[in-house]
Amino acid sequence: MLHADTSTLDLAEEHRVTEAELKASGLAYTILRNGWYTENYTGSIGGALAGGAFLGSAGEGRIASAPRADFAEAAVVVLTGEGHEGKTYELAGDQSYTLGDLAAEISRQSGKDIPYKNLPVADYAAVLAGVGVPEGFAKAIAGWDAEVAKGVLFDDGKQLSALIGHPTTPLADSVAVALQG
């Protein structure tokens, strides 16, 4: 998890524990702290198109996500390369965006007006539960979004693109793939 040592996301605790156990084990290790997968958001494009808006609770929080393929490529580089032992990499996309930016990109590519609607956490959780997301998970997703508003998914260190040797996949490309799917 991106910035697992300082992240306020509740998911970070298990990552902190795992990292501590790796370091204490005496084994060789390299820690890849993956940021959010772009697919975490592009998976909601169909619902946004059907509902006429992209919903969330992230406010103007910046997200430096990348698609799973970029993170997988970084793992291959580390697993097959040398000089990574004992290092921790903060992996995030090169370009950050807000959910408003994502909604604008969906609008641009789909030709439909899809605004971003920032909802209070409880309201967003209720909407998610209303479309079939289990209540506990709906609350978790909405809570994570609220943390996004505080910057937990932002990183501009470009360690991911440095590892893979090229820029990370732009948001526009990920949106295009999702719209084709």
Rank of each mutant, 00 (worst) to 15 (best):
E14M: 12
A125E: 12
D173L: 06
A92D: 03
A122F: 00
A176V: 02
D123A: 15
A149I: 01
H166K: 15
E147R: 08
H166V: 12
V133C: 01
V77D: 14
A172W: 00
I45R: 05
A176I: 01
A53H: 12
S96C: 09
A138D: 07
Y116K: 10
P115M: 09
K158C: 07
Y29N: 11
G26A: 04
V78A: 04
L22K: 00
A74S: 13
D145E: 14
Y89Q: 07
H166M: 08
G136C: 00
T6E: 13
S7W: 06
A69V: 15
G136V: 06
G86I: 02
A12G: 03
P134Y: 02
T30I: 08
T6M: 11
A122V: 10
G26R: 03
A162M: 13
E19R: 05
E82H: 08
H3W: 09
K158A: 14
I114A: 03
V76M: 12
R16W: 04
R68H: 08
V152F: 15
R62G: 02
A53D: 02
F71W: 05
A122S: 12
A138M: 08
P134H: 12
Y97S: 10
L179P: 02
L32V: 01
L160E: 13
D145K: 00
I141C: 01
P67Q: 03
K139S: 10
G35C: 10
A28S: 15
L171Q: 08
L163D: 14
A162C: 10
K87I: 00
P120L: 04
A125F: 02
G81I: 07
S161F: 09
V133R: 08
K117Q: 15
